[in-house]
Design a protein around this nucleic acid. Structure first.
Lengths: 331, 331
DNA sequence: AGAATTTACCAAAACGTTTTGCGCGAATCG
DNA sequence: CGATTCGCGCAAAACGTTTTGGTAAATTCT
């Protein structure tokens, strides 16, 4: 009573294994009648092609990597959660439906064993300009799909995170909520989301005749760095009445700073961030954020890397982002 | 310039593929000298055994499942994070070092495609008594390791979550912080962690001559259910000055209720929970919790399922839990 | 010294697919 | 009507391991 093989199925259907294979793969014509008979019989017998055999034959490994260059302190943190894990959960599920396994790659311990594991493709999350992750995979000829464009690399397929649009959405919202002097805090590394946000901010500032007050923080600094830097920022620019902070850990750090300075949120100064994670939602007050639809993004990334592995080239539009207004910026 | 195979390596070493295989697996004696020569040569040529071939030959799939019976509302939530993901992240990494892929199994959509995917083993997270997940895997003869014992099933290998000890730790702490009337909130499903906590609570109550005030909530109810139920609990037992809430989402719900009732935390009533997630840490005030060392737990579970798959039976002690006192229970 | 055992290795047969080249009858073409 | 194409199907050769049943030579036993 072992699992039926393609041979068992072929015998039962009175055809050769070849025909069964073609019936499933569609790589050659088979008579529609026989095809249906085979499919039905397969269903009945509970036949599933053996993956190991398929992979051996095809040379594929059935594994795709999910890698992030964000330092753990931000990407995963002491609690190992957030942005990356949210993507991982969705991507893992979608990969499953494709009979692919998703491997989480730890943030690049230098000279790590990354070379030892065989991969069909890699999904890279928010890479920075000249990110070593990218060159690693390229050196191995591993197909890449990026979540968030790779700065300066339009040739690498990516799921757009729509950061420019996100920034405009948040800035317009802060403006409508009454803010006239808005500051910006992003990260130091050159990621597309920061660059687009900064550009949108510059444009917004110009359009509203607003002075630019911006800071870039070291991502490994986390909440505490954001706290001290926000303090300084407000000391130098006491008239700030709005703050756009792209990284959620920075945003909660900023919130602490504001509380320390005695600025009331949202009455004196309004605060908004990008990623709608637990941090944003549980903050006091809860932070206005944007629904990036990360689950869909993750699925799209998997579909795209899958297409890429198969040699097809398939670009899928990223979902539209939507604003999630919360007390941190509401009157 | 394709990847060297065992045959290439055998030729280079002047032996047969058989010998190379044995040199690596150690399943038969080979001359130590030749063995070393082979290993060195393998290193030099960059030989890695082809996994697909190994799996085809051995009949293994190289995939283990990570499954939870907790409803998404609690286990993953709108943000898909928490307990489960924390385990997933660690387990995935450890699995990687074993050349195994970890698959996240979605919480059992009834009649789902679970049967379709081939698994070498499954790690089940905090199963309940008579959990359908368990019977599913057993029906398929898939080896199981449970994180948190399976109630009533001492025959299934498990990594103990030490819930009895955890409960005692928290109860003693609350007592030392001044609480004399402590209430308990757990979940409805019969999970070992609840059962052990309840037992420890009963024992503690008896020892301290304290009346028992306990509630079990529907896990799908989440924060809002916990809020209303906590209200009721306190209305009926206004003298409560301590609360042990095992599920973090319930704990934050309770916190909201307490605020609504005008009870100050920790002055009037002290609160503690079990899982030290983002929720506990970000709550206002931050919640006293316990470090379960989930990363280690996850690794242990992977090691155990791995041993189990290979036919060995290997039990590894769970790490000792440690208290994380926070303002929710500190004077 | 001959028999029995151990050592060190090898050849060949799986494992379950997919792919390639080929055959054969039927349909189409000039 | 002969020649060509097309549709449908098959046999056999990979893909890279591990395992099993061997065989000589070296060692040990009696």
């Amino acid at each position: 009573m072992r699992k039926p093989t393609i041979i068992d199925l072929a015998k039962a259907a009175g055809v050769s294994p070849t025909t069964v294979s073609h019936a499933f793969s569609g790589r050659r014509k088979v008579d529609p009648a026989t095809r249906e008979r085979i499919i039905a019989l397969a269903e009945e017998m509970g036949y599933r092609p053996n993956q190991a055999a398929q992979r051996l034959r095809s040379g594929r490994t059935g594994t795709i990597a999910l890698a992030s260059s964000m330092p753990f302190a931000v990407a995963a943190g002491a609690s190992r959660l957030g942005f990356l894990m949210e993507i991982a959960a969705s991507a893992a599920m979608t990969a499953l439906t494709r009979n692919m396994a998703l491997c989480l790659i730890p943030p690049l311990a230098p000279g790590s064993n990354l070379d030892s594991l065989a991969l069909d493709g890699a999904i890279v999350v928010e890479p920075a300009r000249d990110d070593p992750l990218i060159s690693r995979f390229e050196a191995r000829h591993t197909p890449i799909v990026s979540i968030g464009k790779v700065p300066g690399r339009d040739d690498i397929p990516a799921v757009d995170l729509r950061s420019a649009q996100t920034a405009r959405l948040l800035l317009d919202h802060l403006y409508q909520a009454g803010s006239r002097r808005i500051g910006l805090i992003t990260g130091e590394r050159r990621r597309t989301s920061y660059e687009e946000t900064e550009a949108a901010y510059a444009e917004f500032a110009a359009a509203h005749d607003m002075p630019q007050v911006a800071a870039r923080l070291d991502e490994t600094g986390g909440e505490s760095l954001a706290e001290t830097e926000t303090m300084q920022l407000l000391r130098r620019n006491p008239d700030l009445d709005g703050l756009l902070v792209t990284v959620d850990a920075f945003a909660t750090g900023a919130l602490t700073a504001l509380a320390g300075l005695g600025r009331r949120v949202p009455q004196d100064i309004r605060l908004a961030t990008r990623y709608d994670g637990l941090r944003a939602r549980l903050a006091q007050p809860p932070l206005t954020a944007v629904d990036l639809h990360l689950d869909q993004i993750a699925n799209i990334a998997v579909e795209m890397i899958f297409a890429r592995i198969e040699g097809r080239d398939h670009t899928i539009e990223a979902p539209i982002v939507t604003l999630l207004p919360r007390p941190s910026s509401l009157p």
